[in-house]
């Protein structure tokens, strides 16, 4: 490229359609493929991220664990609001999370949960706030987004299976789905150009022999069987 043109293009006032808008602060996700797809090469710190998961148990939380560790390393807390199941302490501790800086908030109703989520996003001591709330109201989402920006908090709004939302104020929306035993991340919305291809996340395997030929369990014979070769 012409050097004069390169100088011109390096001007921060010029934005090119094929790259992403600069993110003020990001949190490396720990997965190279995911970082490459995210504006600013990481989860946005100070914005709402909406995660639409096809079903539970596909590695959606494991995807966020390295970033949560980084949040705690910064000396900030992690807050989970209204989780749908019991967050299991042995697994969290095994992942390296400091459980003294990990708060689980249970709420009686959705209104309390939304209030708590906004407080958590706004709080300077909270670095990452996850919430499992069925919030679809445009104004509510906008409010949460403003709170996340003010508190410089990474807010993740989990959409459980079946909770489809159309428009959203969250600047980052991802759809997570399993494909051939791997987690894939499709970027539905980001501050930047569209990314048509889903990203395949490697490195989420639970055990080393993951790829080996497994046994199969079926009904009615109910016993583990070696699969036919």
């Amino acid at each position: 490229m012409n050097s004069a043109l390169a100088t011109l293009l390096s001007n921060p006032a010029i934005w090119r359609g094929d790259d992403c808008a600069p993110e003020p602060a990001t949190l490396p996700s720990g997965f190279a493929a995911v970082d490459a797809a995210l504006p600013g090469h990481g989860w946005p710190q100070g914005a709402l991220t909406e995660m639409l998961i096809e079903r539970e148990g596909i590695g959606e939380l494991r995807l966020t664990l390295p970033a949560l560790l980084r949040v705690q390393a910064q000396g900030r807390d992690v807050v989970w609001i209204a989780p749908p199941h019991r967050p299991y302490a042995p697994a969290l501790a095994a992942a390296g999370l400091d459980l003294a800086r990990f708060y689980v908030v249970r709420c009686h109703d959705a209104k309390d949960a939304l209030w708590a989520y906004e407080q958590a996003l706004r709080a300077p001591e909270c670095g990452a706030a996850f919430a499992w709330i069925a919030a679809h109201d445009e104004r509510v989402l906008r409010r949460l987004q403003v709170a996340a920006r003010e508190g410089k908090t990474w807010g993740v709004l989990w959409r459980r299976p079946g909770q489809r939302a159309s428009a959203s104020a969250a600047p980052l929306r991802l759809a997570l789905a399993p494909r051939l035993g791997k987690l894939t991340v499709r970027v539905l919305k980001r501050r930047g150009a569209e990314l048509p291809q889903p990203v395949v996340v490697g490195g989420l395997e639970l055990i080393s022999k993951w790829g080996e030929q497994p046994e199969y369990l079926s009904w009615p014979n109910e016993g583990p069987q070696r699969a036919p070769r």
Partner: peptide, 25 residues
């Protein structure tokens, strides 16, 4: 390995296995 979500009550599997086998990893 331990799961990040633990169900409040274990759920019987029976009929979930009817359509396709589950792979034991």
């Amino acid at each position: 390995p331990r799961p990040l979500w633990l169900l409040a009550e274990p759920e019987p599997l029976q009929h979930r296995l009817e359509h396709a086998p589950w792979a034991l990893k």
